[in-house]
Amino acid sequence: MIDEAATDFEAVHGGRPTGAWTAPGRVNLIGEHTDYNDGFVLPIALPHTTRVSARRREDGRLRLYSAQGDGTITDLPLDGLAPGAVASWAGYPAGVFWALAEAGHPVGGADLYIDSDVPSGAGLSSSAALECATAAALNDLYGLGLSAPELALIAQRAENAFVGVPCGAMDQMASACCTSGAALFLDTRTLEQRHVPLDLEAAGLRLLVIDTRVKHDLGDGAYAALRAGCERAAHLLGLPALRDLAPDGLAAALDRLPGELRPLVRHVVTENRRVTETVDHLVRGEIAALGPVLTAGHASLRDDYRVSCPETDLAVEAAVAAGALGARMTGGGFGGSVIALAQAAILAGISDAVRAAFRSAGFASPFMFTAVPSAGARRMA
């Protein structure tokens, strides 16, 4: 694969790349819409990755080519990069260059060849994978010496300020910092990390990812509106962030808020509690006990946060009815993917049941695969 990538790079850019870097997509076990509220999250990295072959340029230009693109090279001057100036997928790697330069790091031009098998628009952080692979490449190409968490924050800055999506740090931290065989318990306020072992195979379990093929665009304003609502609620409650509202104070706090903000607050507070509950189960080796926690998390996203859709609701319902221990929407919402925890022996039956339910409802057939906790961003060659 590395030799093939080098050959592809040479065909597009001429000459050989200096190296190749990779970063994974992620699936979040639990902890949705908590990261921009200074809360807790528990993602795993996927085996699906974005690969970037790269070499330096000395002329101050950035030349980008995507194997999934339209067959043309995007050629940009580094001194012309500014928020909102680069459209489509190219804004993500360009934003990383911009964020590094803004932070004072000495980066110059580069040729990039990008290839990815992370499903786009499926709630699996394809944008974070692209950002983190680019950041890892530039870190090595220009000898910046940045740590994985530092690269994740650069990638987050690119998405927030350059692309314009006000996401929290979870996606980039997962893509940069996850380890094989573990979930990443991340405190998004302090950025303290803990790798919690997650051996699904030893427990006879599998984590099925169901990509509903309903595409979402977090840059369309809906995500920003949710974040603004949470920030307004925290301000009205006199809190730095909703993370600071304890579960035993939730009922009294809701009474002090306008009706439209109450469901958002209820979701964030109960979701943080679900994350810590999940970690406790994993530490005790009680992986099967995660099932009801996942399903409760979906109900909260559907009823309180209102970021689900008919396809994700149906995937959850069909999976649970077919014997899954639990299931929930994962990612920012408005489409995307569902995860279902199930015994390995009945996984095929659950997949068949979900496909049948989608066919009956007239929905496009979902794409499904099994998630394995994988490694974060790294150099391949």
Rank of each mutant, 00 (worst) to 15 (best):
I73Q: 03
R359M: 13
L325P: 02
G221A: 13
P166Q: 05
R378C: 08
A318D: 04
A375W: 07
G229Q: 10
A348T: 15
V265I: 09
L124W: 11
A348E: 15
L314K: 00
T312W: 08
A299T: 10
A20R: 08
G181L: 12
A161Q: 12
A356Q: 15
A356G: 15
E271I: 04
A176D: 01
T276Y: 13
W21S: 00
L138A: 01
D211E: 09
S300L: 06
I114W: 01
A296I: 08
Y113E: 00
G108D: 06
G145T: 07
C230S: 01
A357R: 14
G60C: 08
A183W: 04
L294F: 13
A94C: 09
F367L: 14
G60W: 15
E311K: 09
L325K: 03
D111Q: 06
G221W: 12
E150C: 07
P47A: 06
P43W: 04
H267R: 11
D115Y: 08
A110R: 01
N272F: 08
Q172I: 05
L242K: 00
G323A: 12
S300E: 01
A87H: 13
L100N: 00
L146F: 10
A361H: 14
K215E: 04
S175T: 06
L218D: 01
V196K: 10
L264C: 11
S351A: 15
H48F: 08
A296T: 06
S360L: 15
P292I: 07
E159Q: 02
R189Q: 09
G60M: 13
V214A: 04
A345C: 14
L42N: 01
F162G: 00
S126Y: 04
W98H: 02
T278G: 05
E4G: 14
A82P: 05
P240T: 01
A203Q: 12
F369G: 04
I287P: 09
Y65R: 03
A45K: 06
R273W: 11
G297M: 06
V320R: 01
D115Q: 11
V279N: 05
A5Q: 14
E277I: 06
A345S: 15
L186M: 04
T22M: 11
D79W: 13
R16K: 15
R232C: 02
A20F: 14
E150V: 08
Q156H: 12
T295Y: 09
P17N: 05
G285V: 12
A90L: 03
R194L: 07
A135W: 04
G204A: 11
A357F: 15
S337C: 15
A23I: 07
L250K: 06
A135I: 03
V118C: 01
A344F: 15
H298M: 08
R232F: 04
A322G: 03
A137V: 01
R56K: 06
C132F: 10
I44H: 01
A345P: 12
A246H: 14
D220P: 11
P310D: 03
L151K: 04
H33N: 00
V107L: 05
I2Y: 12
L81A: 05
D187Q: 07
A122L: 07
D244E: 10
Q172N: 09
E4L: 14
S175H: 09
E58Y: 13
G238F: 10
I114S: 00
D352T: 15
P77C: 05
A54C: 11
A136F: 14
V316Q: 00
